[in-house]
Design a protein around this nucleic acid. Sequence first.
DNA 1: TGAATATAATAAACACTGTTTAGTAAATGC
DNA 2: GCATTTACTAAACAGTGTTTATTATATTCA
Lengths: 204, 204
Amino acid sequence: MAIKERKEREKQEMRNLVIESATQLFLKQGYDKTSIRSIADDIEYSPATIYLYFKDKDEIFYVIHENAFDILDKHLRQHDGIADPFERLRAIGRTYIKFGLENPDYYDLMFIMRAPMEQIKNEEKWKAGECAFGYLLTTLSECLEQKRIRPADLHVTAIMVWSFVHGLVSLYVRERMCILMLPDDTTREVLYSSFDLFMANLKM
Amino acid sequence: MAIKERKEREKQEMRNLVIESATQLFLKQGYDKTSIRSIADDIEYSPATIYLYFKDKDEIFYVIHENAFDILDKHLRQHDGIADPFERLRAIGRTYIKFGLENPDYYDLMFIMRAPMEQIKNEEKWKAGECAFGYLLTTLSECLEQKRIRPADLHVTAIMVWSFVHGLVSLYVRERMCILMLPDDTTREVLYSSFDLFMANLKM
DNA sequence: TGAATATAATAAACACTGTTTAGTAAATGC
DNA sequence: GCATTTACTAAACAGTGTTTATTATATTCA
């Protein structure tokens, strides 16, 4: 009986349709302005239909949140070829910052907004987060082994590195870097200089 | 004619009444659940009355945002007496983190939420932010003068320090530290250890 | 094939939100 | 004492996420 399979496929296609529309609207107008009604309008279905495929708005944005991690992951893995773990760490860090500055809405959803994390509480774990953090852990582990960075606890070091780059990006994304009273491109230069300084301090 | 003065005083008292109620509700239930109607209910006035004293919801939370900076400022100034600028910086940093962990809603409003920054765009500058950042700048300036930290550009160093502590607190406040899969008190210990490591790397 | 059942979609409603408007009652000015 | 200004609010407006009752379509089975 292939009907059940077709139904399942159609269900998945409808979910994709919603996600594609939601992602497009989200990146164009932000989270708040991406209402269930605006998605419904866009895909030419009634708002109630969306609730046949998603539990609530959070579930939609949880999927977008997961997709965003896939995109970031692809960016970060570009540097897998760099043999020196410290230089690899530097490349990963710069790419992380670049991703945040160039995709502020995605970054917001991944690391700042509360909405997607509500979903994770009900599910098992923050799989996407663990994947990205695991990548940082292995890179830092190599750095420590080869004595390229100052010796310290692996997790403490990882939290230090992640917190720093997250701080840079999130202060920028949430418009607190205005205290510098500099034009946008100069502000960005300060951010990257700050990252360089951080890496210099980390180096052994 | 003292009537005008009395009226002005009454106007200010009404504003204070709204702010006090809003602050209390905000710290108890968070931003989203603190609606204009819930404030109006609490102070036993109609919702429309609030709009006679405040332009919109953002203006109310901008005042709370400013008050929160006064509170943080008082905490930070406690360490004015520490002669050694590096040790003063360490004390300021720990107090900043402690403030964030113990007052997550205030911290959110001050450094994460978009709402209060909308107000700042229409006004002149982010006065409260500049005051706090200025305090960091003068402390770091002393550290550099006395060669207690590695030589670098003052503003680049300040952004590095602020971004790091902000990253620590904001990842915690927005529940991303769950990747550590540790109980809450252990997570906090990791944060403080991370801060110690950062300071050790900064030291000359 | 035709009646019974299951699925898919929706219109309308519910309970909220921030904000505005029109109208009322009280305080003030002359 | 009367006209005017001020203080306040009920009701409405335009949204929001979400649920319910109903209809139309598709599938199953006799």
